[in-house]
Amino acid sequence: MDLSSLIQAGKQLEAELIAFRRDLHRYPELSLQESGTAAKVAQRLSQLGMEYRSGVGGHGIVAELKGEQPGPMIALRADMDALPIHEESGLDFASERPGLMHACGHDAHTAILLGAAELLVGQKIKGSVRFLFQAAEEINAGAKAMIEQGALDGVAEIYGLHNLPTLSAGMTATRYGSLMGSVDRIEIHLEGRGGHGAIPDQSIDPVVCAANIIMSLQSIVSREVSPFDPVVVTIGSIKSGEANNVIPHYAELTGTIRTFDAKVQQQMAERIERIVQQIAAGYKCKATLKYIEQTPVLINHDGCNRHVEQVMDRMIGAARRIEAPPTLAGEDFSVYLQHVPGCFFWLGSGPAEDASHAYGLHHPKYELNEDCISLGAALLAAIALQRLSAN
Rank of each mutant, 00 (worst) to 15 (best):
T288M: 05
E191F: 06
A39R: 01
G303D: 15
Q386R: 12
S178Y: 09
G177A: 01
H106A: 10
Q310A: 11
D23T: 02
Y359E: 13
Q47L: 03
E353G: 09
A378R: 06
P351F: 10
N391C: 00
Q8A: 12
D261E: 10
Q134A: 10
I18V: 02
C209Q: 07
G90Q: 03
P351V: 14
C285S: 01
V221Y: 08
A280N: 00
P351D: 10
L347S: 11
G55V: 03
I279K: 11
D2L: 07
L167I: 05
E191I: 09
A108M: 02
M180E: 04
M268I: 09
G58P: 02
V183S: 03
V340S: 14
I373E: 05
G127A: 01
A63E: 09
G317V: 08
V231L: 14
Y159L: 00
D229S: 15
L24T: 05
R97W: 02
P98D: 02
Y176L: 14
I299N: 11
G330T: 03
P206W: 07
G342C: 14
F228N: 12
Q69G: 10
Q266M: 14
A319T: 13
P227W: 07
L217D: 08
S31Q: 06
Q123N: 13
V308T: 09
R130C: 00
V264I: 13
L179H: 14
Y366K: 12
K290A: 05
A42K: 02
H357E: 15
M268F: 07
A329P: 02
T37L: 10
E88M: 05
R193Q: 03
Y283M: 13
V276G: 03
Q310S: 15
I74V: 11
L48E: 04
T172G: 14
N369C: 15
A324T: 11
V155A: 12
Q386V: 01
Q267P: 11
F20P: 13
P227G: 13
L289S: 09
A19G: 01
E96Y: 06
G71Q: 02
Q123W: 04
V233N: 12
A156K: 10
G255V: 04
D229G: 09
K365F: 12
R193V: 06
M1L: 13
M101S: 03
V276R: 01
V221D: 12
T327D: 08
D107V: 05
E16I: 03
K263E: 13
G90E: 08
S128Q: 14
I199N: 14
M1P: 01
L190E: 08
L167H: 11
D23H: 00
E29N: 06
G376E: 02
L48F: 14
F131Q: 02
I188G: 03
A319K: 14
Y336P: 12
V225R: 03
E187G: 06
K40T: 04
A145R: 12
